[in-house]
Design a protein around this nucleic acid. Structure first.
Lengths: 212, 212
DNA sequence: CTTAACCGACAGACTGTCGGTCTAAAACGA
DNA sequence: TCGTTTTAGACCGACAGTCTGTCGGTTAAG
């Protein structure tokens, strides 16, 4: 008794299954057979919808990152808030630690050494998506005179790179190490942006307390 | 006619072969069979010396990184030079683009998306090795009053992270994009370290011209 | 009747294991 | 000192088990 569905629907079923499995076991450790079993389809069906296992990973990353970048854009767009606040919220929107919702389990898994490919791909597309958004925020701050940044694009790159790399391994660093890094990151952000001392520290600290 | 060698020697032969193959085809694309053929040994021999394919990768990375970190330490230790100069040289010692010698081909290959695992492992161990060296340099600069860094460790992390991540993909960015990033990096280094404007730009520019 | 979705057997490749073999050198007896 | 035995480390290659991707054929729905 064969069940036929629309391509888009099947594709999503496969992605859902892959997300759970990658989250539970990692990308390399998950076989296409595992996905087959979970979705309840045959080998050929999977390869009818996706051209390879890696293709599934790519689609999954697109999906997760799409959500992340949408949230970042949303945070950046709220023109009722001062630039500093928006910038902070945008960066913080990438911090998904301990958050429920789509992709959370995936993101937890991303950092294990097994999942280097997943990690790298996510990081890359995330950077590509977020840097432009943040850059225009920085330029806006420049125009308002609250920031003084000579190379907005590249400075933004530095600013995003640090947290996504370093706050990643949040489970394998001591709480005080983490706290140090947070402190240092805030401080260095102010310095890099040429912002007034404390102008980011205060609102960021508030957000962090809410978040953690 | 079976050839017997000392374990250390065979191990090195295997690593040499693996280095060339990983460099030419990448880690994932290289099979253990390829290595077997090149060294001219049997399957069992390889697994007598290494417990898995990944174990070979780890050993190879240790070898390459050992050299890199040794060079960095050397650059940092030359107390006849001013701190600024030593710091620059230390950072630049990680830039191996277009350089001959052991590991060069490997490092060229590291950046291809296929080699995510290799890339991640190298980056991690490199960071772990270099950050302490640079941190103590920064602290020395603080003591001399040429730097003014509140969080030496974490600032160093930021400083190393940017070039190793971004200058990596040097072949897939336009020359002007690269130039921008170099300029920006130098400028932001000065800012982050609280160094005098131009104090790094001048010596660094000199070194870059020699290097490229 | 047409076509998009689906099936599952199969080819091909790869990793790691295991029992057994070889060799160089140490240990030994004469 | 010289031949013999023993030992242990290095080595071999067949093989089990797993996995990915393919392909010709089948089925449901419009």
């Amino acid at each position: 008794m064969r069940i036929v569905k629309e391509a888009a629907e099947r594709k999503n079923e496969i992605l859902d299954a892959a997300a759970e499995l990658f989250a539970a076991k990692g990308y390399e450790e998950t076989s296409t057979g595992d996905i087959l079993d979970r979705v309840g389809i045959a080998r050929g069906t999977l390869y009818y919808h996706f051209k390879s296992k890696e293709d599934i990973l790519d689609a999954l990353i697109d999906r997760v990152n799409g959500i992340l970048i949408a949230r970042a854009k949303e945070a950046a767009a709220d023109r009722s808030l001062p630039v500093v606040e928006r910038l902070i919220r945008t960066i913080m929107s990438l911090n998904v630690t301990g958050e429920a919702g789509i992709g959370h389990e995936v993101l937890e898994q991303v950092h294990k050494p097994q999942n280097a490919l997943m990690h790298q791909k996510m990081q890359q597309t995330l950077l590509d998506g977020v840097v432009p958004v943040l850059t225009s925020l920085v330029e806006e701050g420049n125009a308002q005179g609250v920031f003084h940044v000579k190379y907005p694009r590249e400075t933004t790159e530095m600013l995003v790179l640090y947290p996504v790399t370093v706050f990643d391994e949040c489970f394998q660093q001591t709480p005080e190490q983490l706290a140090n890094r947070v402190q240092a990151f805030i401080h260095n952000t102010e310095i890099l942006l040429g912002a007034e001392e404390g102008s980011m520290a205060v609102p960021m600290a508030t957000l962090f307390e809410q978040g953690l």
